[in-house]
Design a binder for these strands. Sequence first.
DNA 1: GTGAAAGCGCTAACAC
DNA 2: GTGTTAGCGCTTTCAC
Lengths: 330, 330
Amino acid sequence: MTANRNRRPTIVDVAAHAGVSKSLVSLALRGDDGVGPSTRDRILRSAAELGYRLNAQARALVQGRTGQIGVIVTDLRNPYHAEVALGVEESAEDEGFGTFLANGRRDPKRLAAQVEAMIGHNVEGLVVVSSRVDSEVLAAAARRLPIVVVGRPEVLPEGVDSVANDDLDGARQAAEHLITLGHKEIAFATTSNRPAARARLEGYETTLQAAALKPSIHRLRPEPGAIDEILSSGATAIMANNDVLAIECLGRAHELGLDVPGRLSLIGYDDTELAARSWPRLTSIDQHCPDLGRTALTLLKTRLEGRTADRHEVISPTLVKRASTAAVTD
Amino acid sequence: MTANRNRRPTIVDVAAHAGVSKSLVSLALRGDDGVGPSTRDRILRSAAELGYRLNAQARALVQGRTGQIGVIVTDLRNPYHAEVALGVEESAEDEGFGTFLANGRRDPKRLAAQVEAMIGHNVEGLVVVSSRVDSEVLAAAARRLPIVVVGRPEVLPEGVDSVANDDLDGARQAAEHLITLGHKEIAFATTSNRPAARARLEGYETTLQAAALKPSIHRLRPEPGAIDEILSSGATAIMANNDVLAIECLGRAHELGLDVPGRLSLIGYDDTELAARSWPRLTSIDQHCPDLGRTALTLLKTRLEGRTADRHEVISPTLVKRASTAAVTD
DNA sequence: GTGAAAGCGCTAACAC
DNA sequence: GTGTTAGCGCTTTCAC
């Protein structure tokens, strides 16, 4: 009973069925008003009857445009990426573009392949929410279409636009918040040493130094117990490189019976959903992910409209105070 | 300095550059061994020099296949959807398919449009991770390509395959776990009354009734304070329809100073990352999301290989005991 | 081993 | 108003 899948009807079939030529069908289907009302009706009815649907690919081939934007993210499971993608999608829709998403699953090779696949399928622009795409891949892509990277890749080749939050400033805000609360022993935790993490680290260091405090940096390997090292370091506050890591620290603190924020203040980065749902609610730095995405789409659009000079947008993050940070008590 | 974007080189350009005919280029590029080694070399070098890349769309038009699978999800921000998508992607890759993802953002109209867009771009199969796609849209799609729904839509038209977890059994496991712990007052919380929620509700009710306990069902509207109603209902345990809701209950319990699991046991559904990261760690029902996705792809594949009879797979969920449930204390 | 020619489904110029 | 024609970039017979 499964319907006939062998051959999808084309405008030729519709034309035959309606007794007109195929260009008439094309016109009628697109609502062009060079078609008589009765003819148009007949054509539309034939199309419906045959279950005709437009082959967007064939159309794209002749028109030279698909109306689709590609979005490639490192890891869909990290809410940060999903939220940026959301911002892109929303404004793409507003601008009349469709979007195709691809998930690189943290693998640079796969990410590169997806860039190729998207270009092969003729997306009109590419948003790469990843710092892991090889710079040569980016450069090659930029030769063919507008491409913008969200975040901070190691190297940003010419011709590639970018949007990032101001990591330095975000880290500064976080550090100052803790300093204002009277903390003297503030640790910085990160599992990454990629550009964004390095910038946050730098913001942290310079802010602490300006306050005559000694930075204490912990690069964590993903091992159980890695967090304990910080927790037992005598720090009264921890800045984590992102919410996911902050939540892990929080969980470990709970397990050790360490009161947050009573004995330990904790601050995340990204302000993803995780932050608002944790206990205690996590203080975090809001990167404004959807804005990052929307800005990326704007850059794509202006490129498509002819801009040739590279642009690198920076968005100011915001401190979101919640319950995981408090004044030192002693 | 931005490179020439005006015209992307085609095999004709490559052919001219290499001084051969365009069909030779096509053959050489695909590694066909009907091309002399020296000719092949020359062709490949020309291609590289011109920055040629295959136009997958044009190829798809003539070959009648794109090698792409479409995945449409209701809401990327819910980790459940992202994890199912992951399963689809992984096994699609294993089978040599690429995947395009689209995010419906909870809007049935948008979801329908995305189904159309995917079909228009000639994906070879469609995985719909949503119960919100209109059944007529599904039915129409099924007439053109293999399509499988993950989850439980209101109506599943003929010709559409499906994969779902056994909601009835999952709810039964959750309820039995709580009953075994000695709970007598077990509430069920849900914000949804769609088929999956209804099935879980039914599993909950029959299990409670079998144990001679009285079900107490709460359909929550998304209002602040909605949760308090349950919390103050005298229940010693709450089964939530999903992890997100469970985490919200947990947060509210914390705010009210209600000890979990000391005074209240809490159990979620889905076993997403949220469950493993909460405090206390959330007991949940694991739907095996990636398996759902992988099974969906298998169904697509067997359809493509010619199966005509509909199939509806059911996957058994598993109880994951963590720290949010405990024996009643009185 | 190589090339010419037809055609995938559609649109867009141009005639009738 | 309506139909004809020539491609879009590629693959694929089928001759040479």
